[in-house]
């Protein structure tokens, strides 16, 4: 059995203090395995983003245990968590979060620079990442000159340029039209075929379902269900695969 990329057990997260304290996560167990694209779905306020932030080592859980590639995050300070993120985790954000003053190539290079990859090595890797998302012809363009879909692909290139083991995407299709949303999901689905990488995307968008290997449902801070598809059933949207659903 392959070792999981991420293991979270009994994750509890309390936000706020005193009378205003909210228990956003109430004991979540989740495992992300390599070669899988997992969708995390749930209504607004269900705790999706909080769970994503904890899995991305941006927030720390109030209770519970989180391990990335077998390395426990317990007791890590902010700088140690940042180090873990830059080594193993890539992010794709709903609003792309590209740097408007940098070109597509520079945006990807910046992500690599943060990881300690500099100079021509960074340029080559950034160019290869942008080429892999179909933007070889847009290297010198600034975000303002790119469509929403292209910007999100630059964000994906930035996330994968450092070859992270874990790719976390927050509503990656929410700001995109149907065509661009499908293209980005197809790209994430393709990236998930890499057996050394796990991808999790938080989404509301039902059009993303056909690309998933696994769909995890969260409600009121708890995992309430999970659908897992057979490895060969992952197909383009026109040939949406069958799924089997089980209660968590």
């Amino acid at each position: 059995m392959t070792k999981p990329i991420l293991e979270a057990k009994g994750i509890v997260k309390e936000l706020g203090q005193g009378a205003g304290m909210v228990r956003a996560l109430k004991g979540v167990d989740i495992t992300l395995n390599p070669g899988e694209l997992t969708l995390l779905m749930g209504p607004s306020g269900s705790g999706k983003t909080t769970l994503l932030s904890i899995m991305g080592c941006i927030l720390t859980p109030t209770e519970g245990h989180l391990a990335i590639l077998g390395q426990s995050t317990a007791g890590m300070d902010a700088e140690e968590l940042a180090r873990l993120r830059r080594r193993h985790i890539g992010f794709v954000f709903q609003s792309y979060n590209l740097f408007p003053t940098l070109t597509a190539l520079e945006n990807v290079r910046l992500g690599l620079d943060v990881q300690g990859v500099h100079g021509s090595a960074a340029t080559e890797r950034a160019r290869a990442a942008l080429t892999s998302v179909g933007l070889a012809h847009r290297l010198r363009n600034y975000p303002r000159n790119l469509s929403g879909g292209e910007q999100q692909r630059v964000a994906v290139a930035r996330a994968i340029a450092g070859s992270p083991a874990l790719l976390l995407a927050d509503e990656p299709t929410a700001a995109l039209d149907a065509e661009n949303g499908q293209a980005v999901m197809a790209l994430l689905s393709e990236l998930a075929r890499d057996e050394s990488r796990a991808i999790l995307a938080v989404t509301h968008d039902n059009r993303t379902l056909p690309f998933a290997d696994r769909i995890v449902h969260i409600e009121d801070g708890r995992i309430v269900g999970e659908e897992r598809k057979t490895p060969d059933s992952r197909r383009p949207p026109a040939e949406a695969p069958r799924s089997k659903k089980k209660k968590a």
């Binding site: 991305g56 941006i58 902010a78 700088e79 940042a82 180090r83 873990l84 993120r85 830059r86 080594r87 985790i89 992010f91 954000f93 979060n97 740097f99 910046l110 992500g111 943060v114 990881q115 930035r158």
Partner: peptide, 16 residues
């Protein structure tokens, strides 16, 4: 600020 938060999320050290 949002760009610096993005850098932080991408794993940059505060020194960076």
């Amino acid at each position: 600020l949002n760009e610096f938060a993005t850098l932080r999320a991408l794993g940059s050290s505060s020194g960076y």
